[in-house]
Amino acid sequence: MTGSAPQAAQDGDRNTSGERNTAKNTVHEAAIVFNQAAVSRGDRVIWSNGTFSIPRRSVTAIVGTNGAGKTTMMKAELGLLPLSHGNVEVLGEPAGKSNKRIGYVPQSYTSDIDSNLTAEQSVLLGLTGTRFGFHITTAAQRNRAHKAMDFVGVADKASYRLSQLSGGLRQRVAIAQALVSDPELLMLDEPLANLDLASQRATVHVLARLNHELGMTIQVVAHDLNMLLPILTGAVYLLDGHPHYAAMNDVLDANLLTHLYGTTVQVVTTPQGDMFVTPSPDEPDDIEQDTHAPVEVAQFHHHAHQHQPDAPATAPAERS
């Protein structure tokens, strides 16, 4: 996908070329807006009555049980699945119209991509738009690809074939491919699936930098919230056949998550201030669970943000 440089959320922010933006403050504008949206397959309603908005510069998870329609929601936002009712706007346009301004990492990327491609060739697909045929690439395109790879930490693997890379490194190549067109919105479908703990942390670190340093809006389909908790600002949760959006302070509620996942869930805060969500199906009903107040969640997020690396933004792509 090719596209224009992202809109800045605040004067003085840098885009993915490292240049100063001069756009008006858009921090309160919505990146995604649902209005009575519904999706059906045949006679089956996947979800309905979706009415909410997701702010720009947010990091949002889409959560729910298997079959609830998480990936379906992302495909609807991309205009790949028709709505049976209502409408969805993404970056101020009807779903599907702004895809050139969106970077997308599908769930099946690491298994579907041709493993004989080098990391550089794979990232360049984000500019050439196809995996097939011979394409002459320019020096400017290769420069953009290397800046994207440098940002995600795989520049030194440019000449490696994907078959030579670990799952975590292939996932970062996938993110670089999505970044090379300088998107405003990054969508990732289960980006942490099948990765070991170190690779999950490395991937989340890349997402944190994209959000904090470049102001990028990020949306992630997620099964497990734990690794993403320090960077999430909100979540869309698919509950009882309806999608809802809420800030993380409200989503991290033991009763809500228990209802959502159909098993007893605790939201636990450690003495160090870290927190995690854990199922506890054998917990007796008369035991008071170790949950936390929303203010504790907010304090944790502030603490995590303060400890993010403060390195200058490295540019994945140049503006053409």
Rank of each mutant, 00 (worst) to 15 (best):
T2E: 12
D11L: 14
G12W: 05
G18D: 08
E19D: 15
R20Q: 14
T22L: 15
A23L: 11
H28G: 04
H28Y: 02
H28Q: 12
E29P: 01
V33Q: 14
V33L: 13
Q36N: 15
Q36W: 08
A38V: 11
V39I: 10
S40R: 09
R44H: 11
R44Q: 12
R44A: 10
I46H: 01
W47L: 05
S48R: 12
S48H: 11
G50P: 01
T51G: 05
F52Q: 03
R57S: 13
R57C: 05
T60D: 05
T60V: 15
T60I: 14
V63C: 04
N66R: 06
A68Y: 01
G69L: 02
G69Q: 03
K70P: 02
K70A: 01
T71Y: 00
E77M: 15
E77V: 15
L78N: 13
L78F: 07
G79A: 08
G79V: 04
L80I: 07
L81A: 12
S84Q: 07
G86Y: 03
V88I: 15
V90M: 09
G92S: 04
A95P: 03
R101L: 06
Y104S: 04
Y104H: 10
V105I: 10
S108K: 09
T110I: 05
S111G: 09
D114S: 10
S115E: 14
N116P: 00
E120F: 02
G129W: 09
R131M: 11
F132N: 15
H135G: 05
N143R: 15
A145K: 00
H146R: 14
H146K: 12
H146M: 15
V152C: 03
V154Q: 07
K157C: 12
K157V: 00
S159E: 14
L162Y: 09
R170A: 09
Q171K: 01
Q171W: 03
A174H: 00
A176L: 06
A178P: 10
L179G: 08
D182C: 02
P183M: 11
L185A: 11
L186S: 07
M187F: 07
M187C: 08
A193K: 08
L197V: 12
S199H: 13
A208M: 11
A208Q: 14
R209G: 09
L210H: 02
L210M: 04
V220G: 04
A222G: 04
D224A: 05
L239F: 08
G241R: 08
Y245I: 05
Y245M: 07
D250L: 07
L256K: 05
L256Y: 07
Y261M: 10
G262P: 00
T263M: 12
T263I: 09
Q266M: 13
T269D: 08
G273I: 06
G273F: 05
D274Q: 14
D274P: 03
V277C: 00
V277E: 02
P279C: 04
D282S: 14
E283V: 10
D285M: 10
D285A: 15
D285T: 12
E288I: 03
E288G: 02
Q289T: 06
T291C: 00
H292P: 00
A293K: 12
P294H: 01
H301N: 08
H302K: 13
D310A: 13
D310F: 02
P312K: 01
